[in-house]
Design a protein around this nucleic acid. Sequence first.
RNA 1: GGGCGGUUAGCUCAGCUGGUUAGAGCACACGCCUGAUAAGCGUGAGGUCCCGGGUUCGAGUCCCGGAUCGCCCA
Length: 1086
Amino acid sequence: MSETNFPKLEEAVLAFWRERQIFAKSDQKPAPKGEFVFYEGPPTANGKPAMHHVLARSFKDIFPRYKTMRGFHVTRKGGWDTHGLPVEIAVEKKLGVLGRKTLNKEQIAEFTKQCREWVFANIEDWNYFTERMGMWVDLEDAYITYHNNYIESVWNLLKRMWDRGMVVQDYKVVPLSPRISTTLSQNEIADGYREVDDPSVYVRFPLKLETTPLAVREKLQAQGVGLEALTNLAVLVWTTTPWTLPSNTMAAVNPDMDYVVVRSPSAGPLVLAAEAVARLEDLHKERLEVVAHLKGRDMEWWEYTPPFPEVCVELGVVKAQGEKRPDGRPVMHFVALAEFVSAEDGSGVAHEAPVYGAEDLELARQYGTPLLFGTNEYGLMVVTEERGKFFKEADKGLIRLMKERGVLYHAGQIRHRYPFHDRTGDPILYFAKPSWYIKTSLFRQALYENNEKINWFPEHIKHGRFGNWLKDNVDWAISRERYWGTPLPFWVSEDGSEKICVGSVRELSELVGRDLSDLDLHRPYVDEITFVKNGKTFRRVPEVLDVWFDSGAMPYAQWHLLLDEKGEPLPGTEENYRRWQRHFPADYICEAIDQTRGWFYSLHAISTLLYDQPCFKNVICLGHLVDEKGHKMSKSKGNVVEPLPMFDKYGADAVRWYLFTGSEPGEQKRFSERLVQEAQRGFLGTLWNVYSFFVLYANLDRPDLQNRPAVANRPEMDRWLVARLQQLVERVTARLDAYDARGAGKELEQFVEELSNWYVRRNRRRFWKNDDPTDRESAYATLWEALVTLSQLAAPFTPFVAEALWQNLVRRVRPEAPESVHLSDWPEAERALVDETLLVQMGAVVRVVGLARSARAMSGIKTRMPLPRVLITAPTEAELAGLRHFADEIAEELNVKEVQVLGLGEELLSYRVLPNLPLLGKKYGKLLPAIRAALAELDSRMVAQTLKAGQNLNLELSTPEGTRVSLSPEELLLEARSPEGYSAQEQDGYLAALEVRLDEALLLEGLSRDLIRLVQQARKEMGLNVSDRIHLSYTAEGKYAESLLRFGPRLQEETLALTLVQAEPEGFTTELSDEEGRVRFGLSKA
RNA sequence: GGGCGGUUAGCUCAGCUGGUUAGAGCACACGCCUGAUAAGCGUGAGGUCCCGGGUUCGAGUCCCGGAUCGCCCA
């Protein structure tokens, strides 16, 4: 069949599905096994669907299809992710409001209106694409994250977390564009990096003698460091941001790193990382004498005097410098331990100003230190003499000040990359802003333990990427200072003392005192909702919710779940509750690997926090799609492969098949048109060829496929195929049950190959030249069953071709059969039909035939020439029996007159005696080389006799110790070796040796096959039908004349010639002439 | 800088708990078949299993170190 027909066929199948509502009917298919829960991870419809969406959607489609056939019900509710930054940025560009900090109410209204429209900019493309690729998902009843009902459910989830104290407000370090004080996203600063020169300063933080930790004191004393040195000791701290030094609250060292006390001629005794000594000597041009060694962890809680000690009191954070907590620990200004500290740059001691760094802030949380805000959020200094200056401009003055105070050790410059905001040209200010958090870190253990219950494919994600992420879990920052998102449902009283989380529209209505059912829950409308409670006016906080919370809420929000504080459904939402229960948790989800910290995490976090259980049981985590050369596909590189042209050219099935079988789903996949073409030609092409073969003859013969012969009454070749088919059903089922689409696909591929190149090839004649109707019916029945079963097994993979096969093979024969292959029940393997003996036997036959073909190719004698004999053998008795049993089959396949099966110890065979390594290795270990040597010396025929008799083989080893070993038959392997004078091939104990001797009779027979071919060729050129009869006339000389005399009748039979006369050729003529003679035929249609 | 994964034939990929001569498909070469035929099939050539150490009787496979590509995070 021509390749270009697949796309057309698919269009026809799509029309059929549409017209007959097959997808809707699959929803009604009886489901004795209950619900198989699938969640659609919502894509965004503002971009165009691309090839990686085909990948994800193929894997999302295959298992629901499979499970439906297996007797489950699968709800395939679609979903769209609609909020968030990509949409906002696109609309900002359109409206030209980029980087504007504050929009007024009208502007927000316009902005969110535009966002709402933009969200579905490409929805048409998505709808078409999804249907075209054969993904069945309900897009008409999809959940949409911007819908009021969805938002309300999200609020409800937040409320339940709020009630349990999981939601808090705390600081978070965000990148700000100072002056306009606008929070930027990572994407916005990614392009803004520039090479700049910044200060690189080393500052002495004098350590307080009385707070020296015990471990330090002991170590230093042991190394002979005196009191005088201890008194003047300072830790040397490095920073590239002097303007943050007034905000310093800790000095951090790496607990596992080596530190030293050195004597500096210019600055006295200093503590710094051992690794940094040489660098500092070089930099400051002085010799630093090492006087003692310490570990970073020895120094924890050691207090120091910061360069600007007045700041903490000035800001009112503490009452006095050196203030202690109730437990006696210092409030701030002490040495802390942090694994992120390195000594690659600087001194190996990091300055910590938690307001200005995410890691620093995290450390401050661990140590419970307060924050010192040396600048305001517009980047202006609010402390020291530099007060009022822009932060970057304060560096010089501060350095001078430290010099005056005698704490500056060294001031230099460093060239490095630092981000700037393109629009304002200002350097980015990382700044701690108040932010809303979910306290996920309190549930670290539960998150990790629930992960243990999830099956990850590939498995390494579980404890690798995902597990590590959970182990290091930090609180989930859920607030964003944006416009287009789910507004946070938090209302705060004017004085900030009271906070209320609203869990439903009804609750808000009650608080406000009017019905808000028609309120658009988005900004700016929700911002206007205020209410008075306890005499205070409450206003909503300005932020919106992280979009990952939106998508992680889909198990609940897609059903508009609303619960009260007891976990009971709110009045009127009982049905929603039941639907949710039926669909939680998911049996299966699938997305690409980038979702480990996205959707996979948000699903897992929400269900763990609220239900202490995983949200999904099985997850396939797909690798990314790259181009043919392994590069990322991107528009700028122009290497993007569009899906629709691929579908139009090769068909969606071909694309799907490649994506399923081309490589492991978790691996990065190279994609190119060539590979799709290969997939189409390989599996689909072969399957289709077998199918067309069947159809071609079945249309002529009209076999009765309703009443097929019992399997037991069919020839062995058919029973073999039946057995193989049952085995296939078993294997494919097992693979798919294990979410192994690729393994299942490979099984199908292998089977189709055997079906085509062994079964059909060996049995072709039974379909068109068969006087035995029973045998013919049996062949038709067997091939039909194989094709029908294949169409079912392939249905989840390649739904279109499978459907085409089903319609034509099954629906025509049995109109009462299921209307679509996708509505049929998955085949059950019949164990009783799996004849293991037959499978083993046929396996040996195929193997030996392969070797014989190789041998014949080597000999240079065409298959057409019959050869007198082939000698064959196989390593096991069972297989030898098979070879004997199928000797005729083998003779015909190889075109030899005699097949001689050689058993163990036969005259003609010699052997190679090999140790059975897996057995002997364990037993004898180091003796193996000696055993090998001894085996090589033996007379192999004698060994064969011994083993045939079932006796042990005794060996005398030529090791110094002279050990004797006794080897059992299982511990040895005999491999047949090619006999002399034959054209032979051997492998793994299988052997085929052709006797290459052509006598006169064989030559004439071989020539007769040349003549048959000649006439057949002529028939075709004349344009005859395969069943047309002809008359033949001929003239011949030499061997051809002899051959015709002898094999004329066979020629007639093969070419459907009613007559064969030696006469001047008439009609269509054809001729042949070579060293064997010449011949000329005339053909005419009878 | 950290985490995870990859590196096997010209290309895309297999290779289970270590075991004898490392496989498949495509492409290539040669050939076969001619009642699946603008198809089909077979055979062959092609490998430093990324590099270097180690463990072992034996390493593509296990361990250590390194290179390189990709993803995620800083």
